[in-house]
C-alpha cells in the first residue's frame, strides 16, 4: 500500500541528474528520495547527503534484500546493459519503476518487462525521453489540439558532444523515434538510414546518423543525431509542419548572450529542470492513480523495435518497411506506400 508520500530510490544517477531531481522535487509535493543506490560509493554518499537519507546501497538487490519496505518506487539510470535485470528485480519486489530509455537491450526484453509490470500491477514508465521536454510537449499540444492540422513533416536534430560509450548513438535513435511517433501520433511505415563513422575510423560504429521516415497519409520525417561535437554544448531543433500550421523549437532561437570580451558567448536557456519535473510529475500521477492502463506498447518496446529496424536499414543501405501494424492507438489508417 502506498504511503502518504511516494518514497523513491535513485539508482546510479549521475551527480547532475541527482541535482536536477533534487531541484524538481522541491517543486513537487508528495514525493521524497528515501534511498540511494550507487555502484560508486563516493557518489552514493554525496547524493545521500544531498537528499538527507542514510539509506545508501551499492546495488539494487542489496536495497531490496535489506530494506525492501523503505521505498515504493525505483528510478533506474544505470547503464543500458544493466537496466533489464534491475527493472525485473524491482518489479518482482513489487516496486513501481521509472527507468531511463531505452529500458532494455532489445524490444522483446522490453515487452517482457511491460508484461511483468502488468502481472505485478505496478507502474512501469520509461523516462529520460525527449517527449518530456517542455518544448516538445508544447509542440505536441499544438498538434494534438488540431492547431497544426494533419502532421506533414517533422524535422529533428539532436547533436551532442562526442560520446564513446557503446551503443549511445542508437540510444539516441530510440529516443528520437519515440518522439517522432509521439508527435505524429503514428508509427512510420518506412525507414531509411544513412550513417557516418568518426573521421579516420571507418571501422568504428557511426557517430552520425540521419534517419528518413515515411508515415501514413504521406507524412515524413528527417531525424539526425550526432555524437560528434567537441566537448561542451549540444544542439537540438524540432520543427513540426502540419497542413494548417507549423511549430518550431530551435536552440538557435533560445540563446542568451554572455559578453566577456571577444566574440559573444551564446548560452542556451535551460529546460532540463522542467523536463525532469514533468517526468516525475507524470510518474507520480501514474502511480497514485492506480489501477491505471499502465505502460502501452508504443511507450515501451516500440521505439526499441523501430531502432532495431533503423539499425537494419543502415546496415543494408536500403529502406526497410515496418510491417507490423498492431500498435495501439497510433494513427495508421492509411498504410499506402508513397
Amino acid at each position: 500500500m502506498l504511503q502518504e508520500k511516494l518514497r523513491l530510490a535513485l539508482v546510479d544517477f549521475r551527480d547532475d541528474e541527482a541535482e536536477l531531481c533534487h531541484r524538481a522535487l522541491g517543486w513537487l509535493s508528495g514525493m521524497s528520495v528515501d534511498a540511494i543506490v550507487h555502484r560508486d560509493s563516493t557518489l552514493g554518499d554525496r547524493q545521500g547527503a544531498q537528499f538527507g537519507t542514510s539509506l545508501r546501497f551499492s546495488s539494487l538487490p542489496q536495497l531490496l534484500d535489506s530494506a525492501p519496505e523503505s521505498v515504493d518506487a525505483v528510478l533506474v539510470n544505470s547503464p543500458r546493459g544493466d537496466r533489464e535485470q534491475l527493472v525485473r528485480r524491482a518489479l518482482e519486489a513489487g516496486k513501481h519503476l521509472l527507468v531511463q530509455s531505452p529500458c532494455a537491450m532489445a524490444s522483446r526484453a522490453a515487452a517482457s518487462l511491460r508484461t511483468l509490470a502488468e502481472q505485478q500491477r505496478r507502474q512501469f514508465m520509461v523516462g529520460g525521453l525527449d517527449r518530456y521536454r517542455p518544448s516538445i510537449q508544447a509542440i505536441q499540444q499544438a498538434a494534438r489540439t488540431g492547431q497544426l492540422g494533419q502532421p506533414v513533416l517533422l524535422r529533428m536534430h539532436d547533436w551532442r558532444p562526442r560520446d564513446k560509450s557503446p551503443g549511445s548513438i542508437w540510444d539516441r535513435v530510440t529516443d528520437l523515434l519515440d518522439a517522432a511517433c509521439w508527435l505524429f501520433d503514428a508509427v512510420p511505415l518506412d525507414i531509411a538510414v544513412l550513417g557516418q563513422p568518426p573521421p579516420n575510423s571507418a571501422a568504428d560504429p557511426p557517430d552520425f546518423l540521419q534517419i528518413h521516415l515515411g508515415f501514413p497519409l504521406r507524412g515524413m520525417a528527417l531525424l539526425s543525431t550526432a555524437n560528434a561535437l567537441p566537448p561542451g554544448s549540444g544542439y537540438r531543433c524540432v520543427t513540426l509542419i502540419g497542413s494548417a500550421g507549423a511549430a518550431y523549437a530551435d536552440d538557435h532561437d533560445q540563446m542568451q548572450l554572455l559578453l566577456q570580451g571577444g566574440s559573444a558567448n551564446a548560452r542556451r536557456s535551460n529546460e532540463e529542470l522542467a523536463t525532469m519535473t514533468t517526468q516525475l510529475k507524470e510518474f507520480q500521477r501514474a502511480v497514485v492513480r492506480e489501477p491505471s492502463p499502465g505502460t502501452q506498447r508504443q511507450d515501451c518496446e516500440l521505439p526499441i523495435e523501430l531502432a532495431e529496424l533503423a539499425m537494419q536499414a543502415w546496415s543494408i543501405g536500403k529502406p526497410v518497411r515496418f510491417e507490423r501494424m498492431e500498435h495501439g492507438s497510433r494513427n495508421n489508417a492509411d498504410p499506402t506506400v508513397v
Binding site: 494533419q150 506533414v152 513533416l153 531509411a192 544513412l194 528518413h212 504521406r218 497542413s243 529502406p319 508513397v338
Partner: peptide
C-alpha cells in the same frame, strides 16, 4: 538520393 514527397497544402 532518398526522398519523400507529398501534396499537403
Amino acid at each position: 538520393v532518398y526522398a519523400r514527397s507529398a501534396i499537403a497544402f
